[in-house]
Simulated assay, not measured.
Amino acid sequence: MIVVRPLASTGSLDASFFEIPDRVYQFLPYWPAEDESAIRRLFQLEATRNDIVVYTDHEHLRLVGIFPVGGATAYFGYWETTSDLTLNQEAFAQLSATARQRGYRTLQGPLNFNTFHSYRLRLGAPPSWSYFDKEPINPTYYPELLSRLGFTPVLSFESRLIELATVPTVYEDKASLLAALSTLPYDFIPLTPTTWRQYEPELFELVQQIFSANPAYQPIPEAQFMLLYNPEYAAKLCPHTSVLLRERTRGQLVALSLCHPNYAPLHLGAKPPVFERDYPLLPQKTLLAKTIGVHPNFRNQQLMNSLGAYGMLSFRELYEQIIFCLMRSDNFSLHFTDGLPAEVARYALFEREV
């Protein structure tokens, strides 16, 4: 039986909420790295601007309904379940009924409050890399369950792995970009914990400007951004490939590229990665190109390609392969790797009418 529990402003969660994933992932080679204290804190913060309802049987399924004030779309997130269609039909029926009663027209997910946190499902069999940091991972039956519940993909994404053997071709194709970097009217500022502190307020504004028009994007308060992206986060970035672009005349930040090694093989759990400490321990050096973007006022100037070219300056000496992570399938950033041999993993965000 599904228990329905609206969360008060404290956003408190039962202990079983964090036990269900153990049952779901116990026989899989990957699992969601959940920081219980961070999730509890996030629910407390989000309960001040969303109505939140938890649907669970405390053993085999958990499902969170997220009802933003205003708008026509409600969301579901933190969905973890065994392969039980009947149980999910009951939970989603109750969630959909609540959404209809509150005037929402569509239900979308999985999305854990906003796109700064986990969202989307991985489709198909696991790729050769198994999983990387913050990649959507889930049992392979999840997409089929959602399909049988009436959901269809509304946004699609992909990750592309490029092997070392392809890298010389990449350099040949981008040779003119590499040569042109020094002539651009921009300063390339390597991202380290020190430079992150220096530009922290401007970084928040830059991220808002770059990504606010993206589908499914929802703004978050600056304080919540700082909880996620801060000098501790910067410590895991690769300082040789992660960079800020600053327009030289006015000193304005106009683009960013956030890259770091795939630390997943080290099984660090809740221990925050540190590039200087953990990079030498990696059995395989895989670079994750995670977040790359250009301010809207500076687009159509080939800056996306310039960011990629900057990353390649150090790539051959430091890494064996690269994964361009979680790019929206209709996004311009995909073009940087078009035509190159790649292993592709696909993902989707799902939606249905209520």
Rank of each mutant, 00 (worst) to 15 (best):
Y131W: 12
D133E: 12
K134R: 15
K134C: 13
I137K: 00
T140I: 15
T140S: 13
Y141G: 02
Y142Q: 04
P143Q: 03
E144M: 03
E144T: 07
L146Y: 09
L146R: 00
L146F: 12
S147K: 09
L149S: 03
G150W: 06
P153E: 03
V154E: 11
L155R: 12
E158I: 01
S159K: 13
L164S: 15
A165G: 10
T166K: 02
T166F: 01
V167R: 14
P168Y: 02
V170T: 08
E172Y: 11
E172V: 14
D173G: 13
K174P: 03
A175P: 04
A180G: 09
S182I: 11
S182T: 15
P185W: 02
P185L: 08
Y186V: 08
D187K: 13
F188L: 03
P190M: 11
P193F: 07
T194G: 09
T194A: 14
T195L: 08
W196E: 06
R197E: 06
Q198N: 10
E200V: 01
L206V: 03
V207C: 12
Q209V: 04
Q209H: 13
F211D: 01
S212V: 07
N214T: 09
A216D: 14
I220G: 01
E222N: 14
A223P: 03
F225A: 03
F225D: 03
M226W: 15
Y229W: 11
E232H: 13
A235C: 09
A235E: 06
K236N: 09
L237P: 11
P239A: 10
S242I: 11
V243A: 06
V243E: 07
V243D: 06
L244G: 14
